[in-house]
Design a protein around this nucleic acid. Sequence first.
DNA 1: CGGCGGCTTGAAGGACGTCAAGATTAGTGG
DNA 2: CCACTAATCTTGACGTCCTTCAAGCCGCCG
Lengths: 252, 252
Amino acid sequence: MNEHVRTGRAPAPNPIADDGDEQHFCSTCAFGSVCLPAGVEKGALAELHMLVEHVGPYRTDEAIFRSGERFGAIFAVRAGMVKTRTIDAAGREQVLGFHLPGEMVGLNAIHPAKYPCDALALDTVFVCRFSFPALATLAARMPGVQQQLFRLLSADIGKATQRAGDYTADERLAAFLLDLADRYAARGFSANALRLAMSRNDIANYLRLAAETVSRVLRRFQDQGLIAVDGREVVLRDRARLAHLARNILAQ
Amino acid sequence: MNEHVRTGRAPAPNPIADDGDEQHFCSTCAFGSVCLPAGVEKGALAELHMLVEHVGPYRTDEAIFRSGERFGAIFAVRAGMVKTRTIDAAGREQVLGFHLPGEMVGLNAIHPAKYPCDALALDTVFVCRFSFPALATLAARMPGVQQQLFRLLSADIGKATQRAGDYTADERLAAFLLDLADRYAARGFSANALRLAMSRNDIANYLRLAAETVSRVLRRFQDQGLIAVDGREVVLRDRARLAHLARNILAQ
DNA sequence: CGGCGGCTTGAAGGACGTCAAGATTAGTGG
DNA sequence: CCACTAATCTTGACGTCCTTCAAGCCGCCG
């Protein structure tokens, strides 16, 4: 098993949101994005840096945390892609989300005080670990950090709510592709070409569809000139029409 | 339009979570439930009381807030039932939730800094208004308040996630009835008899079903002896079998 | 009483799931 | 480098759960 070869045919557009050495906190991280540009609270970044713990690498299918474990920390993805999922009473998997570099995982564990889902690496993953008690203490002293935590939590409510909506397979897939492309773009990657780190099964499960339906809709999108698909490589060819399909979901 | 008659035939089991005069903060409120029993931070309760603003009554269909309005406060329902909903690009309503006395509304507005949904009174509603800037300032001084806010936010992620799952109409309705009954029970009302404040249409919309499907499933549940339905009055007759139906949703 | 909205019930249709069989692709060992 | 195998993905045929459409019922209020 080769240590670095996980990306298949392409020369690994494996997203790494790492802006340098350990002295600099990820500028693309969910926390950095607020603390850095604000200018205020220069001390906050230094203290966050003291707090954070770099963890990894995790290999494909390894767990950052598992359902039921005592909650102690939240994580920012530093590199790779993380999938969160639960296993329901009937043993069926339910995919909750895919997390790119710079995005947070584990916020849903604060309330139950246990992780309510598994967080699994879809490829080689590095994360930043934030001890939550320490972070909360820091937040009490640093209004900007507290605000950012509130915002991150609130944003996750919105994402989950959006996902709970009632939409057709076409709407779901169009929104999924656009959302993913936009999130890649926000982290500095190509806005129209993406490599799906997850299987069709994971996509289908996430969108509450059958894998066969995902195949068929992607096929049709390609036939209609909306996208170009080659295995897990996807190119968005007509953003306008995709956005039109997804307008009910993505419009606020 | 009579001021108090909204409950129909029954002599108004209209939930009021008000434990007395204004000197005492609602003991059933989402904040009280943590601040009171903890014992610690006796001062916190007093300060929360200074902060809170009693608002109401709102009549049926009146808005506590509306989508797009600038976010400034979160609300605890004090009496009555609140429905949150959005209107999507196609003009279709999407019901996000029903909120009982003691439950919070508006947490999903922190991130966008605008309310992302309408909050409407389903009957006569009283609320407590918490200015969010003031609450955040208090939270920075009071670890218990901060923790409670984090927990409330995190819990809402869990609720929305649960709702996003893929389930049959039977599973959804069984879980809906049990959940509602349990939440009423937690506020001191009957655990097995409830009056639905919302229309079949609202239930259907919330569960992503057609109103006709809700009617049919309720009918069948009644024929199977699981519940007794009379208009908007529902009695749970066989909690065990309902829980079995809902096991995939409600099991953590 | 008459009309209106909410609710129920039946019949027909559709979107998606399930089942089954191939087609690619990836992973493994010679 | 090339079989060989297993996993993933695709494609087609069919079934099903739920929606849609339509009509009738019930309770409420003028």
